[in-house]
Amino acid sequence: MTSDLGFWTLQALNALQLSMLLFLLSIGLTVIFGLMHFVNLAHGSLYAVGAYAGAAAAAVGGFWMGLFVAPVAVAGMGVLLYSGLIKRMRRSGPMAQVLVTFGLIFVLLDLTRIFWGDLPLAIEKPGFLSGRVALLGIEYPAYRLFVIALGLAIFTGLAWVLGQTQVGAMIRAGVDNDAMAACLGINVERLFFTVFCVGCALAGLAGVVAAPLLSVTPDMGLQILIPTLIVIVIGGLGSLKGAIAGSLIYGFVQTFGAVLAPQLASVLIYALLAAVLVIRPMGLFPAKG
């Protein structure tokens, strides 16, 4: 079976799909860290909230309604979090931030349970994405291809924004050196706010996109958190290149590990992370400054 080309194609697509999902989560987290030196452990919980908000909206207006509402709702939540919590925690050390956002995980976990109960919810895939598509000699679920395409689209969009626009230049300047950015007359505070909300929106989007593949449960945020953290630590905290590289590494190691060496699969990724931290303590593509 492993000599079959179709098998490799299938696994590669699976890996790519997982990578894209992780990319949506890690890009927001890593840019927030790069800009604000803020570690948001509750980023995974925002993803869960996105899945719930999407599921609730989808129940009323179908999948596309959910896909629209989830990022907006989570971005709205980002506004609340930023003004209520994050802004005041900016100057605290990493430990205080880790703890506050750890507390936030608890709070968001129970809030989703209070609003939506403990039973798993599901989102129906839209009709034309529910089948399978013939591709490269295999049949592949259309929805998963949609996830890959969406991820690539977001990646391209972000690459364009960061590389070609004024805002992108400001963000890159801020990631490299926030004092310098302030000197250049950039309203750092407003930039932070915007980036934080966009990061939240992407987490919400990841949640609703993942929802038809998994079931929506209160602890889905906790489950995705560790892979997301691994991605950004392998890639380098605050590094844009690192987020995409880390996502791909995680997606492929995890997927191929699971089929080739199921005994080692989950240990493998942690061993890889440990190796990266030992050899390159700042990640593969460390951010400057």
Binding site: P94, M95, L277
Partner: peptide, 21 residues
């Protein structure tokens, strides 16, 4: 700092996965 937290987290999860599997 945060890298130490993450590194120890990685080792902890490694032990967890190993025992679990």
């Amino acid at each position: 700092g945060i890298y130490f937290i993450m590194a120890t987290l990685a080792f902890g999860q490694m032990a967890y996965s190993y025992v679990f599997q």
